[in-house]
Protein backbone atom coordinates (compact mmCIF):
# COMPACT_ATOMS: atom_id res chain seq x y z
CA UNK A 1 0.00 0.00 0.00
CA UNK A 2 1.20 3.50 -0.71
CA UNK A 3 1.67 5.47 2.49
CA UNK A 4 2.36 8.69 0.63
CA UNK A 5 0.57 9.71 -2.52
CA UNK A 6 1.84 12.73 -4.41
CA UNK A 7 -0.72 13.65 -7.04
CA UNK A 8 0.02 16.00 -9.92
CA UNK A 9 1.98 18.49 -7.86
CA UNK A 10 3.07 21.71 -9.54
CA UNK A 11 4.91 24.59 -7.93
CA UNK A 12 5.63 28.03 -9.34
CA UNK A 13 8.07 30.43 -7.71
CA UNK A 14 7.18 33.67 -9.41
CA UNK A 15 8.02 32.83 -13.01
CA UNK A 16 10.04 29.71 -12.21
CA UNK A 17 8.23 26.40 -12.46
CA UNK A 18 10.08 24.31 -9.89
CA UNK A 19 7.74 21.32 -10.22
CA UNK A 20 5.49 20.35 -13.10
CA UNK A 21 2.77 17.77 -12.62
CA UNK A 22 4.78 15.41 -10.45
CA UNK A 23 3.06 12.28 -9.20
CA UNK A 24 4.66 9.64 -7.02
CA UNK A 25 3.47 6.85 -4.75
CA UNK A 26 5.71 5.87 -1.86
CA UNK A 27 5.13 2.28 -0.75
CA UNK A 28 4.98 1.68 2.96
CA UNK A 29 8.10 0.13 4.59
CA UNK A 30 10.11 0.49 1.39
CA UNK A 31 13.15 2.77 1.11
CA UNK A 32 12.47 5.06 -1.82
CA UNK A 33 15.07 7.40 -3.25
CA UNK A 34 14.38 10.60 -5.11
CA UNK A 35 17.25 11.56 -7.35
CA UNK A 36 17.94 14.20 -9.94
CA UNK A 37 20.40 16.93 -10.84
CA UNK A 38 20.74 20.11 -8.75
CA UNK A 39 17.76 22.38 -9.09
CA UNK A 40 15.53 19.51 -10.23
CA UNK A 41 12.97 20.34 -7.54
CA UNK A 42 13.65 17.59 -5.00
CA UNK A 43 13.81 19.85 -1.97
CA UNK A 44 10.79 21.75 -3.21
CA UNK A 45 8.84 18.48 -3.33
CA UNK A 46 9.91 17.69 0.25
CA UNK A 47 8.80 21.11 1.37
CA UNK A 48 5.40 20.60 -0.19
CA UNK A 49 4.97 17.16 1.37
CA UNK A 50 6.06 18.49 4.76
CA UNK A 51 3.80 21.52 4.47
CA UNK A 52 6.48 24.21 4.57
CA UNK A 53 4.67 25.87 1.70
CA UNK A 54 1.61 24.95 -0.34
CA UNK A 55 1.80 23.62 -3.91
CA UNK A 56 0.46 25.71 -6.78
CA UNK A 57 -1.61 22.72 -7.84
CA UNK A 58 -2.01 19.09 -6.89
CA UNK A 59 -2.62 17.06 -3.77
CA UNK A 60 -0.65 15.12 -1.17
CA UNK A 61 -2.13 12.25 0.81
CA UNK A 62 -0.74 10.37 3.78
CA UNK A 63 -2.28 6.92 4.16
CA UNK A 64 -5.21 8.16 2.10
CA UNK A 65 -5.78 11.32 4.12
CA UNK A 66 -5.67 14.57 2.18
CA UNK A 67 -3.01 16.91 3.62
CA UNK A 68 -3.71 20.03 1.58
CA UNK A 69 -4.13 23.14 3.69
CA UNK A 70 -2.56 21.52 6.73
CA UNK A 71 0.31 23.32 8.37
CA UNK A 72 3.72 21.73 8.82
CA UNK A 73 3.29 21.08 12.53
CA UNK A 74 -0.06 19.41 11.96
CA UNK A 75 1.52 17.04 9.47
CA UNK A 76 4.11 16.03 12.04
CA UNK A 77 1.27 14.92 14.30
CA UNK A 78 0.04 12.74 11.45
CA UNK A 79 3.43 11.09 11.09
CA UNK A 80 5.58 12.99 8.63
CA UNK A 81 9.15 13.65 9.76
CA UNK A 82 11.79 15.40 7.72
CA UNK A 83 15.36 16.62 7.79
CA UNK A 84 16.79 19.57 5.94
CA UNK A 85 19.61 19.68 3.43
CA UNK A 86 21.50 22.03 5.77
CA UNK A 87 20.50 20.22 9.00
CA UNK A 88 18.85 23.38 10.41
CA UNK A 89 19.47 22.47 14.03
CA UNK A 90 18.52 24.78 16.86
CA UNK A 91 21.95 26.34 17.23
CA UNK A 92 21.24 27.88 20.61
CA UNK A 93 20.55 24.50 22.19
CA UNK A 94 22.52 21.41 23.13
CA UNK A 95 22.40 18.22 21.11
CA UNK A 96 20.21 16.60 23.75
CA UNK A 97 17.82 19.54 23.85
CA UNK A 98 17.51 19.48 20.07
CA UNK A 99 16.34 15.90 20.17
CA UNK A 100 14.12 16.59 23.17
CA UNK A 101 12.30 19.20 21.08
CA UNK A 102 11.74 16.37 18.64
CA UNK A 103 9.60 14.64 21.29
CA UNK A 104 7.31 17.65 21.30
CA UNK A 105 4.38 16.07 19.45
CA UNK A 106 4.39 13.15 21.87
CA UNK A 107 4.23 15.28 25.01
CA UNK A 108 1.37 17.34 26.30
CA UNK A 109 2.11 19.16 29.56
CA UNK A 110 0.66 22.67 29.52
CA UNK A 111 2.29 25.89 30.61
CA UNK A 112 0.82 25.84 34.11
CA UNK A 113 1.85 22.28 34.84
CA UNK A 114 5.34 23.11 33.52
CA UNK A 115 5.60 26.27 35.61
CA UNK A 116 4.61 24.40 38.77
CA UNK A 117 6.68 21.30 37.93
CA UNK A 118 3.72 19.10 38.74
CA UNK A 119 4.46 15.38 39.09
CA UNK A 120 2.91 14.71 35.69
CA UNK A 121 5.31 17.17 34.14
CA UNK A 122 8.34 15.62 35.87
CA UNK A 123 7.30 12.20 34.67
CA UNK A 124 6.94 13.53 31.17
CA UNK A 125 10.32 15.26 31.32
CA UNK A 126 11.87 11.96 32.34
CA UNK A 127 10.10 10.25 29.46
CA UNK A 128 11.24 12.92 27.00
CA UNK A 129 14.80 12.61 28.27
CA UNK A 130 14.83 8.83 27.92
CA UNK A 131 13.31 8.96 24.46
CA UNK A 132 15.78 11.59 23.33
CA UNK A 133 18.67 9.52 24.67
CA UNK A 134 17.30 6.46 22.89
CA UNK A 135 17.39 8.17 19.53
CA UNK A 136 20.72 9.85 20.19
CA UNK A 137 22.18 6.43 20.96
CA UNK A 138 20.58 5.07 17.82
CA UNK A 139 22.43 7.58 15.65
CA UNK A 140 25.58 7.04 17.71
CA UNK A 141 25.76 10.41 19.42
CA UNK A 142 24.96 9.31 22.96
CA UNK A 143 28.25 10.76 24.20
CA UNK A 144 27.75 14.23 22.77
CA UNK A 145 24.55 15.15 24.54
CA UNK A 146 25.70 18.36 26.20
CA UNK A 147 27.53 19.98 23.34
CA UNK A 148 26.03 22.96 21.64
CA UNK A 149 24.56 21.65 18.41
CA UNK A 150 26.40 24.27 16.37
CA UNK A 151 29.75 23.03 17.68
CA UNK A 152 29.43 19.59 16.08
CA UNK A 153 30.96 18.80 12.71
CA UNK A 154 28.46 19.05 9.90
CA UNK A 155 28.06 15.32 9.35
CA UNK A 156 27.16 14.80 12.99
CA UNK A 157 24.76 17.73 12.90
CA UNK A 158 22.85 15.85 10.25
CA UNK A 159 22.69 12.80 12.48
CA UNK A 160 21.28 14.97 15.26
CA UNK A 161 18.67 16.18 12.80
CA UNK A 162 17.73 12.58 12.00
CA UNK A 163 17.46 11.75 15.69
CA UNK A 164 15.36 14.86 16.19
CA UNK A 165 12.88 13.79 13.51
CA UNK A 166 12.80 10.21 14.75
CA UNK A 167 11.95 11.37 18.25
CA UNK A 168 8.52 12.34 16.94
CA UNK A 169 8.06 8.68 15.87
CA UNK A 170 7.12 9.43 12.28
CA UNK A 171 5.57 6.88 9.95
CA UNK A 172 7.29 8.51 7.01
CA UNK A 173 10.73 10.09 7.17
CA UNK A 174 12.00 12.46 4.48
CA UNK A 175 15.79 12.72 4.40
CA UNK A 176 17.25 15.52 2.29
CA UNK A 177 20.81 14.64 1.18
CA UNK A 178 21.81 12.92 4.43
CA UNK A 179 25.17 11.76 3.06
CA UNK A 180 26.50 15.01 1.64
CA UNK A 181 29.87 15.78 3.18
CA UNK A 182 30.29 12.40 4.85
CA UNK A 183 33.44 10.30 4.37
CA UNK A 184 33.29 6.70 3.16
CA UNK A 185 33.20 5.27 6.67
CA UNK A 186 30.45 7.60 7.79
CA UNK A 187 28.46 6.73 4.70
CA UNK A 188 28.57 3.06 5.63
CA UNK A 189 27.29 3.97 9.09
CA UNK A 190 24.53 5.99 7.47
CA UNK A 191 23.44 3.08 5.29
CA UNK A 192 23.33 0.95 8.39
CA UNK A 193 21.32 3.62 10.22
CA UNK A 194 18.75 4.02 7.46
CA UNK A 195 18.26 0.27 7.39
CA UNK A 196 17.69 0.22 11.14
CA UNK A 197 15.19 3.03 10.77
CA UNK A 198 13.41 0.95 8.18
CA UNK A 199 13.38 -2.02 10.55
CA UNK A 200 11.68 0.20 13.14
CA UNK A 201 8.76 0.34 10.73
CA UNK A 202 9.45 3.82 9.36
CA UNK A 203 9.07 4.40 5.65
CA UNK A 204 12.05 6.36 4.31
CA UNK A 205 12.04 8.68 1.32
CA UNK A 206 15.45 10.12 0.68
CA UNK A 207 17.06 12.58 -1.66
CA UNK A 208 20.65 11.71 -2.37
CA UNK A 209 23.35 12.47 -4.91
CA UNK A 210 25.71 9.64 -4.07
CA UNK A 211 24.63 6.97 -6.58
CA UNK A 212 26.55 4.15 -4.94
CA UNK A 213 24.73 4.82 -1.72
CA UNK A 214 21.39 5.14 -3.46
CA UNK A 215 21.88 1.89 -5.36
CA UNK A 216 22.80 0.06 -2.16
CA UNK A 217 19.97 1.43 -0.09
CA UNK A 218 16.99 2.16 -2.27
CA UNK A 219 14.40 -0.40 -3.25
CA UNK A 220 12.62 2.04 -5.49
CA UNK A 221 13.93 5.12 -7.26
CA UNK A 222 12.16 8.11 -8.77
CA UNK A 223 14.04 10.58 -10.94
CA UNK A 224 13.28 14.28 -11.22
CA UNK A 225 14.74 16.50 -13.88
CA UNK A 226 13.91 20.17 -14.32
CA UNK A 227 10.74 19.83 -12.30
CA UNK A 228 9.39 16.74 -14.06
CA UNK A 229 9.47 13.12 -13.04
CA UNK A 230 11.29 11.44 -15.90
CA UNK A 231 11.50 7.90 -14.58
CA UNK A 232 10.62 5.57 -11.75
CA UNK A 233 11.53 1.97 -11.03
CA UNK A 234 13.80 -0.47 -9.28
CA UNK A 235 17.51 0.41 -9.07
CA UNK A 236 18.25 -2.01 -11.86
CA UNK A 237 15.66 -0.41 -14.12
CA UNK A 238 16.86 3.09 -13.36
CA UNK A 239 20.46 2.14 -14.05
CA UNK A 240 19.45 1.14 -17.57
CA UNK A 241 17.13 4.04 -18.26
CA UNK A 242 18.43 6.16 -21.16
CA UNK A 243 16.62 9.34 -20.11
CA UNK A 244 18.15 9.14 -16.66
CA UNK A 245 21.60 8.56 -18.05
CA UNK A 246 21.15 11.51 -20.38
CA UNK A 247 19.98 13.77 -17.55
CA UNK A 248 23.00 12.87 -15.46
CA UNK A 249 25.47 13.03 -18.33
CA UNK A 250 23.99 16.39 -19.22
CA UNK A 251 24.76 17.58 -15.77
CA UNK A 252 28.29 16.29 -15.84
CA UNK A 253 29.02 18.01 -19.12
CA UNK A 254 27.61 21.31 -17.88
Amino acid sequence: MAILQIEKISKQFGGVAALKDVSLDVEEHRITALIGPNGAGKTTLFNIVAGTFPPTAGAVRLAGQLLNGMQAHERVQLGIGRTFQNALLFDNMTVLENVMVGCHPRSHTGIVACGLRLPAMRREEEFIYLEAMKYLNLVGLGLHTDELASNLPFGQQRLVAIARSLAAEPRLLLLDEPAAGLNALEKMDLIDLVRRIQEMGVTVLLVEHDMTLVMQLAEWIAVLDAGRKIAEGTPAEIRRNRQVIAAYLGEEEA
Binding site: G51, T52, V76, G81, F84, F90, P105, A167
Partner: peptide, 15 residues
Protein backbone atom coordinates in the same frame (compact mmCIF):
# COMPACT_ATOMS: atom_id res chain seq x y z
CA UNK B 1 13.90 28.52 22.06
CA UNK B 2 13.50 26.27 19.04
CA UNK B 3 11.11 28.76 17.45
CA UNK B 4 13.63 31.48 18.16
CA UNK B 5 16.41 29.55 16.45
CA UNK B 6 14.43 28.52 13.38
CA UNK B 7 10.72 28.69 13.02
CA UNK B 8 10.77 26.38 10.00
CA UNK B 9 12.77 23.73 11.82
CA UNK B 10 10.56 24.05 14.91
CA UNK B 11 7.44 23.56 12.81
CA UNK B 12 9.10 20.57 11.15
CA UNK B 13 9.19 18.76 14.49
CA UNK B 14 5.61 19.58 15.31
CA UNK B 15 5.91 22.81 17.27
Amino acid sequence: RAIHASEIAAESVGV
